[in-house]
Amino acid sequence: MIELSNVSKLFDQARAVDDISLTVATGELCVLVGTSGCGKSTTLRMINRLIAHSAGSIRIDGRDIEQIDPQQLRRGIGYAIQSTGLFPHWTVARNIAVVPRLLGWPAERVRQRVEELLQLLELAPAEFAGKYPRQLSGGQAQRVGVARALAGDPDILLMDEPFGALDPITRESLQNELLRIQQQVRKTIVFVTHDMDEALKLASRIVVMDKGRIVQQDSPQALLAKPANAFVENLLGGQERGLKQAGLLRVDSLMQALARPTSAVTGPRIKATDSLRQALSLMLWHRCSSLPVVDDQGRQVGVLQLDALMSRPQ
């Protein structure tokens, strides 16, 4: 869906992006991660021509972006940023409707799309459609920003640290929301963050950048297992890599399953859908070497042993 070939960007002879090549497949959630000033946001903004690239080529669905009218290009690409960029004097509904209206959609189709997206992002249309941005919490405003980015039903969604200014609880909630939405709508998403935990949680593929270049790109599991160099290893958390890797695996991947679910259990227990990192934390806290594993109804469906956690393959 997106192809960058030998792309560079110079600002007054300083190379912000230096000869990078990157392919993002259809339906992939690709996360660009790195320290401040590494070129990740510049790379993102070159895709929809908010910043012009200095060298190389960028193609979307096989078409060179320089051959596409910039306004037409941007209307076909969703864009969500940290500050949301909502128009303060417009209602939530009008903010979401801006791109469909520019695309010339009929009024009834626009209304239906606004309502559909508010429901998708768990914002009750009757409650939120007529509100103004100043009446929203930070998390609600960010949801509206994501809804606006999705409003024109674009194939591609670009997200530049959209959750960076939020508190940890709201941020985690919106990360979960993005994963849920992605399972339903399967957009091609390029997501920029400086937070490696966020990258590991969201990405199907992580692209690590440093000083304008791509240092390594791979799946979260592969990246944790074999970082290319000390920079990537440190970015991944150094000695905490094992915990981060455990955070990507579910309890049911290592538990001993029971032949049939039993009655609800009391005391320390872990859900089958929780992560191995959460299970290890519970074991350390309660000083136990095994945990009953329960389903959403609280019935025991298995047992997780510390030995199984320690001997899991990397």
Rank of each mutant, 00 (worst) to 15 (best):
G62R: 07
A129N: 03
I156M: 03
R287T: 11
I206H: 00
C30S: 08
L123R: 11
M255H: 03
N229M: 02
A141P: 08
K226T: 00
V24C: 03
Q239D: 14
D210A: 14
I169Y: 04
L4R: 08
V114N: 10
G104N: 10
G302P: 10
T273W: 11
P261L: 09
Q300W: 06
Q72L: 10
R299P: 05
H89L: 05
G62H: 09
L236T: 00
G247F: 04
W285K: 15
V190I: 11
T273S: 15
P133S: 07
G238V: 00
W285S: 15
L120H: 06
T91G: 11
R113M: 03
V146Q: 08
R250Y: 09
F163P: 09
G39P: 03
V293C: 07
L280G: 11
R250M: 13
D197T: 05
P133D: 09
Y79S: 12
V146P: 07
R269C: 11
G237R: 00
R45W: 09
H286A: 12
H286V: 08
S41Q: 07
R111C: 05
P133F: 02
L121Y: 12
M310P: 09
I81V: 12
L22H: 03
F191T: 06
D12G: 10
S36T: 14
V251D: 10
R241Y: 00
I270M: 05
S21D: 01
M255Q: 07
M1K: 02
S275M: 02
V294K: 02
L223M: 06
K201Y: 01
L236H: 00
V146W: 08
Q245G: 05
Y132F: 13
V251Y: 04
D155K: 15
L236Q: 00
R299I: 11
V303C: 08
M196H: 04
A151I: 02
L276E: 12
L29Q: 02
V7N: 05
R171A: 03
D12C: 08
Q256M: 14
Q305T: 12
D69W: 04
D195T: 01
E177Y: 01
E233W: 00
R75S: 04
I96G: 09
T273L: 13
L306C: 10
Y132Q: 04
R74Q: 11
R143E: 05
I51M: 14
V114G: 10
P154K: 05
S83P: 10
R171T: 03
Q256E: 15
L248K: 07
E66S: 13
T42L: 12
S275Q: 04
S290M: 13
A199E: 07
M283G: 01
L284R: 14
E240S: 05
A264Q: 15
G237S: 02
V33L: 03
Q142M: 05
R49G: 08
L309R: 10
I206W: 01
A25I: 01
D155S: 15
